[in-house]
Computed example of a mutant assay.
Amino acid sequence: MTDLAEESGEVPRALAERPAVHPHLEFEWRAFWSLLSDRPSGPHAAIPFSSIDRYAERYGVRGADEFDRFHDLLAALTAALNEAAAARAPSP
């Protein structure tokens, strides 16, 4: 998208409105987007615990406190995504 903005001189809305991610949260941000496709379909679906656990093990998240923080951050990101999707959904 950045290339498109540079070529056209126009910044796409998704690029202009993208959230700023603090450097100390980049690992969790990448994990969230990597694991998002593991969610079952349907509204308010969460990333399965087993997927988060596998990712954490593979990428060196060690200890209960570190894992709980990782899990809680992914759950918060999922909740924020679900809230945003609900806000965009057409009203009945």
Rank of each mutant, 00 (worst) to 15 (best):
L73F: 11
G42A: 06
E83S: 15
L73W: 04
P12L: 06
F32K: 00
D3R: 10
A56N: 09
R58T: 15
W33N: 11
A45V: 06
E10P: 00
R18A: 13
I47L: 05
A56I: 08
R62P: 00
R18H: 08
L25I: 01
S34K: 05
V61A: 02
H24W: 09
S41R: 14
L15R: 02
L74K: 01
T2G: 05
A64R: 14
D53A: 15
A87Y: 05
H71W: 13
H22K: 12
R39S: 06
A75F: 01
V61P: 03
S51E: 08
R58M: 09
P92H: 09
N82Y: 08
R88L: 11
Y55P: 01
A79E: 15
A79I: 13
L4E: 12
R30V: 11
A89G: 00
R88G: 09
A31G: 06
V61L: 01
L36D: 08
S51R: 07
A20C: 04
S51G: 12
A84H: 14
S41E: 14
D68K: 11
P40W: 01
W29G: 00
T78V: 12
A45L: 05
P90L: 12
R58C: 07
R58F: 03
S8D: 06
R62C: 01
E83T: 14
T2P: 00
P23R: 13
S91W: 04
D53I: 05
L15M: 04
W33F: 13
G42L: 06
P19V: 11
N82Q: 15
F32C: 02
P48C: 08
L25F: 14
E26F: 09
E83Q: 15
L73N: 09
R69T: 12
H71T: 02
N82L: 05
G63N: 03
A20K: 10
L74Y: 03
V11M: 12
P92F: 06
S41G: 10
V61G: 03
Y59D: 10
L81A: 10
Y55A: 04
L36F: 10
A86W: 07
S91L: 10
P23F: 11
F27W: 03
F70D: 06
A14E: 15
A14T: 08
D53Y: 14
A80P: 04
W33R: 09
H71Y: 15
G60Q: 07
D65I: 02
S91Q: 10
P90G: 04
H24K: 13
